[in-house]
Design a protein around this nucleic acid. Structure first.
Lengths: 119, 119
DNA sequence: GATAGATGTTAGGTTAAGTCACATTCACCG
DNA sequence: CGGTGAATGTGACTTAACCTAACATCTATC
């Protein structure tokens, strides 16, 4: 009787399923992995297997990308290095503020532009 | 943004995953399907895809088999035909009584032997 | 207009899964 | 005992899904 409870973290989904669930392409999913943003397991035959948490992460990434962040930015946001140019606090807050993701129509990486309003 | 909520019913698991989750063989899983006990979806390429509910069903089947029921029995238990030789009530109860699945060391189909104790 | 980031696309190779047929095991029954 | 049916194993062969790697494309920035 295997534990079915830890399904959130169990890698049971092949990439095809993840594609459906996230509406990302295989190329994108693999690229994000190459950028160290997701770390699926592998089957004995080297096929990627994802958990539901992985899917959530991918959806987060998708959202952040749509909000104008670069993959490098997102990596920082997810694995906060201590005390970088942009104070972690602000950055953290930005993450939570995903609620107000209206102004997704900018260009360039948000982290390079700073967040403050300087008129 | 696809609905991730209905994961219980969404067919996202390939048979390989189901094998791991249930500890059944592909042969068994396919056979139970042939006996009309599970009905996975199919991908465009004809590969079976299962939901978590399907996995539960398979685990139920596995349990009932271990308890001495035949697949035909189990089919009856799952899709109760009205008013058969064995009163549905008794049968239903047997299902719930899976708690006490001690006496799995019998032979033959339970449904053919009747449940009553006649000394 | 060269560069870097993100993604598309194609080619070639391997694994996972599909069907189908035949073999096996075992309890049952005349 | 020999035959039968239910459940499962196994092998052959085919196809879908996935893998890596390389090269192309698009776009924003310098």
């Amino acid at each position: 009787m295997p534990d079915i409870g830890d399904l959130r973290t169990r890698c049971v989904l092949p990439i095809g399923t993840v594609i459906q669930l996230t509406d990302l392409t295989a190329r994108q999913i693999r690229y994000y992995e190459a950028q160290d943003l997701v770390h699926p397991e592998r089957t004995a035959g080297n096929h990627r297997m994802y958990s539901l948490n992985h899917v959530d992460t991918l959806l987060e990434i998708k959202g952040q990308l749509a909000d104008g962040f670069s993959l490098a930015d997102i990596k920082q946001l997810m694995h906060p290095r201590h005390h970088e140019p942009n104070s972690d606090e602000e950055v953290r807050q930005m993450l939570r503020d995903e609620l107000m993701n209206q102004s997704r129509l900018n260009q360039g990486s948000k982290l390079q532009q700073g967040f403050g309003f300087r008129p």
